[in-house]
Amino acid sequence: MKMKIYQDDSRMMAGMTMKDAARPEENHMGLHSCKRTEDVLENRRALADKLGAPLDTFVFGRQTHSANFRRVSKEDAGSGADGARDAFPNTDALYTTEPGIVLCTLTADCVPVLFWNERDGVIGVIHSGWQGTVKEITPKLFDRLAEEGFDPRNFRVQIGAALSQEKFEVDRDVFDRFQALGYADDFIRFNEETGKWHIDNQKTVERQLIRAGVPAERISADRTCTFESPDGFSYREDKKAGRHLSFIQMKN
């Protein structure tokens, strides 16, 4: 199974599955958009085996490009793992302070954000498509974490593979929403030939993290473009594209 491992030590495991021609449906991980449910479940079980974590410890949200997040407990383990209807409704970010739970997010161009604070024992995942970014799901979640006593200076963050600025071409309506943020102008480029704007969603999310108090040197970004890479699923390229699964687990 193809995957990127972003973090693996005695306490944390974080990574992202990639397209793999040797797997059913090329390693598609999304139950809501697959051809056969059993293919995705087979892929998820294979990932669970690789991680040494039972599938019933995985947790998913039913992603709707919202700014909604949820704190997860051990009682929530298995939510959405073998059926999309069981995922947390209208939820695009998850966090927990409990070990043994595998928090998951699904993307195909959107920005996956994986974060962990080893000192205080908290981890999380965020699904930040362009709508989640302009709704500021990432800073809103980090504001909540700060309210709960977790200092943003103690977090490490991995931004996963996503659509590049070159391929994220938008019309004025989307441009206006990014510009309205007041801090994304450095990541917007206008193409006079096409009359379109190109926006770097990853860099905008990174700016949000820094503004939330996460030190820049504690943020890493995988600049693999999900459109251009042969290992990427891209909804912009193919509306029937599969989904990557980004995961993080605080080990027992």
Rank of each mutant, 00 (worst) to 15 (best):
M16V: 15
R177W: 09
K50M: 14
D120Y: 05
P215H: 05
F115G: 02
L245H: 02
F58P: 03
R71F: 13
N43Q: 01
L145W: 11
D222M: 04
A46M: 08
V214W: 03
D56W: 08
K251V: 03
E118T: 14
F60L: 11
I248N: 01
E42D: 13
G182A: 00
K239T: 13
F247S: 00
W197D: 05
N201K: 01
L103A: 04
H198W: 07
W130P: 12
G15E: 05
G124D: 02
I123Q: 07
R44M: 06
S79H: 13
Q249P: 00
A67Y: 15
D143V: 14
D8C: 11
T96H: 06
C225G: 05
A67C: 13
S73I: 11
T194L: 10
S33H: 10
P230E: 04
R11D: 15
L31A: 00
V111M: 09
P24R: 00
D222H: 07
K203R: 14
H198V: 08
L106T: 04
A84S: 15
D176G: 05
K239E: 15
Q249C: 06
K251Q: 03
T204M: 02
Q202T: 14
M12Y: 15
A48T: 06
E38L: 07
P99S: 07
F155Q: 00
R243Y: 12
T64W: 10
G52L: 04
V170I: 08
R23L: 12
Q249K: 10
R243V: 05
T204D: 04
A162M: 02
V214N: 02
P54T: 09
V122C: 03
V214A: 03
Q165T: 03
E217R: 13
K203T: 12
K19L: 13
N154H: 12
Q131L: 15
D176H: 12
M1D: 09
L47S: 02
R44T: 00
R71T: 11
L51C: 01
E25K: 05
P152I: 00
D8A: 10
K251Y: 08
P54I: 10
F69D: 00
Q158F: 15
L94A: 00
M18N: 08
N117L: 08
M1Q: 11
D143C: 14
I123A: 07
V102H: 06
T37A: 08
D39I: 02
K50H: 14
S229E: 05
E228P: 08
T138L: 08
A53N: 15
G149L: 07
E206K: 12
T194N: 10
M18A: 13
E206A: 14
R71G: 06
N191R: 08
N68E: 11
